[in-house]
């Protein structure tokens, strides 16, 4: 598949800080991938998100070197307004990133900035809201929405600009488990049905792992692991060293694995886990 994002030896220092937030980072994302990026606080997740959408170096100053190329464009040489059409960005705080007072206006905001005629805006708003499953909220005030709904509005607002990739920086950190799962389901749908490339920076591993095809672990501004989530979750030492969440289902099967009682791939969801447990009991002649 064609390369969509290419981060080459990218290093970034905030202001005068002696410690780099990103240190010689390399990352490639191909079109159609759903990549999860994780790491503890301070590992560089947010900095990476800002480097991908061009906020670094255009808006956030600092010392940097290396290159970030998205869809053939070098982000340092492309104005933010142009990048905005290629990279849809969603942030952590559902309140602080919304600019309008009702859903329709919020989704229209990016289109207005692109100076799209009104007739073109209306179908795009409809399309974006339908894609995230909140068409019925179109005329609602943002104040009345739950955190999960607000995040879906933020996703719709990014989608309306028909980006090639969606970059989400901890979009579920303020949400409850149900809200988190709703957002994950929406992302899965966008990736599977609409073939949108998704980069999700997130520390809720249990919630994210079943949805992503690849998990990148950051530590002190570097990529320390890059593999399918099942592979990463086998590496207990890595999880512990980075202080990452150890999803309960995978943790249980990993312990069985170590005791020599289980040898298949680690299940990521409760459903997969039940199936594996059933298979195990059947094999051992129990039940």
């Amino acid at each position: 598949m064609e390369t969509l994002i290419e981060v080459q030896n990218f290093t970034f220092y905030y202001g005068e800080s002696p410690v780099p937030a990103l240190a010689d980072l390399n990352l490639t994302v191909r079109r159609g991938e759903f990549v999860g990026i994780t790491g503890p606080t301070g590992a560089g997740k947010t900095t990476l998100a800002l480097a991908l959408n061009g906020v670094i170096p255009h808006f956030q100053g600092g010392r940097w070197s290396g290159r970030v190329v998205v869809a053939g464009m070098d982000t340092a040489e492309t104005p933010c307004s142009r990048l905005a059409r290629i990279i849809g960005s969603v942030f952590q705080d559902p309140e602080a990133q919304l600019v309008a007072t009702d859903v329709e206006e919020e989704v229209a905001f990016g289109l207005e900035n692109q100076a799209l005629p009104r007739e073109e805006m209306l179908p795009r708003i409809e399309e974006a809201l339908t894609m995230v499953g909140i068409r019925d909220l179109r005329h609602r005030s943002l104040k009345e929405l739950s955190g999960g709904q607000k995040q879906r509005v933020a996703i719709a607002a990014a989608l309306a600009m028909r980006p090639a990739v969606l970059v989400l920086d901890e979009p579920t950190s303020e949400l409850d488990p149900q809200g988190t799962q709703d957002v994950m389901e929406v992302l899965r749908l966008l990736n599977r049905e609409h073939h949108l490339t998704i980069v999700l920076l997130e520390q809720k591993l249990a919630a994210m792992a079943p949805y992503i095809s690849r998990l990148v672990c950051l530590h002190e501004g570097r990529v320390v692991a890059d593999a399918p989530p099942r592979e990463i979750l086998r590496r207990e030492k890595l999880l512990r060293e980075l202080g990452l969440e150890d999803p309960p289902v995978a943790a249980f099967f990993r312990q069985l694995q170590r005791a020599g009682l289980y040898s298949r791939d680690l299940p990521l969801t409760v459903e997969e886990g039940r199936e594996e447990l059933g298979r195990l009991f059947a094999k051992e002649g129990i039940l």
Binding site: V249, V270, F281
Partner: peptide
């Protein structure tokens, strides 16, 4: 609410 993952995993048993 959803019960913890381990409880959901073992529900049938």
């Amino acid at each position: 609410l959803l019960p913890p993952a381990v409880l959901r995993l073992t529900a049938p048993y």
